[in-house]
Design a protein around this nucleic acid. Structure first.
Lengths: 220, 220
DNA sequence: TTGGGCTTGTGAATGTGAACACAATCACTA
DNA sequence: TAGTGATTGTGTTCACATTCACAAGCCCAA
C-alpha cells in the first residue's frame, strides 16, 4: 500500500468526497461489500482510479471480494478529517443561507453549522433548519463563545467586505463567501469566494457538451 | 498562436469562466488593458497559465502592453459559446430555485432561465426574480413552446426522478439536478447532479487547509 | 487440497497540464 | 532612428494524474 507516503493528491481528495454518498446508498440497500467495478459505474469513473484512490487511504479491500462498505467509509472520513468536527457559523439567512441550513445534511459532511445570524429583525428569532437565527450584532461575541473556526458569508454583496472584516477581527481566519469578491476583502482573513453565476455557467457548459468517454477497464 | 488546433483543455475552459468577473470589474473601473501579471494576481493563478489559456482562444495580447479587456471578454465568451444563448427552465421554486432566480446575474452567463415551475398553488402565479412561477402541469407543453434546451431540477429528492423522466420525454436531453441522484434516474436524459452537501464539504475542506504556493513568475 | 473464478493492488506506460525561461514584439522617448 | 523597458507567446522541461496490464491473493466448490 502507498498509504504510508502521507500525501494524498488533490484530485483524489476531491473524488473521495463523491464516493461517500453512493457508499451511503449501498449501505442503506444492505450491501456490505462493493467492488471497484460497481462503485465506478455509480460514480462514472474508471475502476482503476477508484482502486488507486483507495490505496491512498489505507489497505482496505479483499482480493476476489471487494471493499467493506463500512470500513471504507470510515477510512475515507478519516482521510478527509471528518472526525474533528469543525464548527461553522452562517451570516445571512437569505435564499442561499436558508438553502444551506435546510438542505445540507449534517452527520455526513464532517462539519456543523452551529449558529446563524442576520440583521433583519423579521428573521431574528425565527427557526430555520435546526437553528434559531440570531442578531448579527452578537456575531463577534458568539464566534468566541462557540469557538467558531469558519464563517460562511451569504449576505448582499455590498455588506460582504464589512462582515469579512468583522469575522477576521474576531479571530476567524477562514471565510467562505457567496458574494462575488474581487473588491476590498480584508487581508487578515482567507476568503474563498463562490460565484453562483459562474458556477451555474460552468455547470450549464459541462452538462450541455460532455463526452462520457471511458477506457477499457471501465467498459462494464 | 495555438488557436487553430480547435481543442481547448478542460482546465482552461474552467478557468476561462473565472476570468470573466474580474475582467468585468476592470472594465467598470475604466481599465482598457490588463496584463497577465495583474489578472493573475486577481485570480490567484500563475501568469503563464493565463497567457497559455488566452493563446487557446485567439491571439489577443499586445507585447509590452497587455490584453484589451473588451476584446478579451468577447473572445472568451465566444470560446465558451456564450453567443448562442441557451434556453433553460427551472422546476422547483424552493430555496435553491429562488437563489438561482434572484442571485444569478443574467447577461454574463450565456444562458437564460426563461420559465419557472412549481406544483405548490401558493407559489404559482407569484413573481420571483423576473419570472412568474407557472404550474408544473404545463411543463411539457411549455418546454416545447419555448424550445427549452436544458432543465434545472430543484425539487425534493423524492420527486426528482419523476420530473427528470417527464423532462426527458418532452425532448430535453440535459438535466441539471440539485437532488442527489444515484437512484433511478431515467436513461433518456443526461443528468448532472449537484450534491449541495458534498460541494459544501469540499469547499470547507479546501478553505480550511490550503497552501497558496506559487512559482517564480507569480511572485508579484 | 486442489483448481477456477474474481478482484485487488501496483509497476510501468501513457497522457496532460503547469512552470520556466527567453526570443519576439510593441510603445515611447530622445 | 535607435534605444529602453515592458509584456506577450511558446518551446521545453518537469511533475503529476490516468490508464493499462498482470501478478498476488481471496473465496468457494468439488
Amino acid at each position: 500500500m502507498i498509504v504510508g507516503s502521507g500525501h494524498i493528491p488533490s484530485e483524489t481528495t476531491d473524488r473521495l468526497f463523491s464516493y461517500l454518498r453512493p457508499l451511503m446508498c449501498l449501505l442503506n440497500r444492505g450491501s456490505d461489500t462493493v467492488s471497484s467495478r460497481e462503485l465506478a459505474r455509480l460514480c462514472k469513473v474508471n475502476p482503476s482510479v477508484i482502486r488507486r484512490d483507495f490505496s491512498y487511504v489505507g489497505n482496505l479491500g479483499t482480493r476476489g471480494v471487494g471493499y467493506g462498505v463500512v470500513e471504507l467509509m470510515e477510512n475515507i472520513r478519516r482521510a478527509l478529517k471528518f472526525d474533528d468536527d469543525m464548527k461553522i457559523a452562517l451570516v445571512g439567512v437569505g435564499n442561499i443561507g436558508r438553502a444551506l441550513l435546510e438542505h445540507v445534511r449534517f452527520g455526513m459532511e464532517g462539519f456543523k453549522i452551529v449558529a446563524a445570524f442576520d440583521n433583519n429583525p423579521e428573521k431574528i428569532g425565527r427557526t430555520v433548519g435546526r437553528l434559531v437565527v440570531e442578531d448579527a450584532i452578537a456575531l463577534e461575541e458568539r464566534i468566541q463563545s462557540e469557538a467558531i473556526q469558519l464563517v460562511i458569508v451569504a449576505v448582499p454583496e455590498i455588506c460582504a467586505p464589512d462582515v469579512a472584516r468583522r469575522v477576521g477581527d474576531a479571530g476567524v481566519n477562514s471565510v467562505l463567501s457567496f458574494s462575488p469578491c474581487g473588491l476590498a476583502m480584508p487581508d487578515n482573513v482567507r476568503v474563498t469566494c463562490v460565484d453562483l453565476s459562474l458556477e451555474m455557467a460552468r455547470l450549464v457548459y459541462h452538462s450541455s457538451s460532455r463526452d462520457g468517454a471511458r477506457g477499457k477497464d471501465g467498459a462494464a
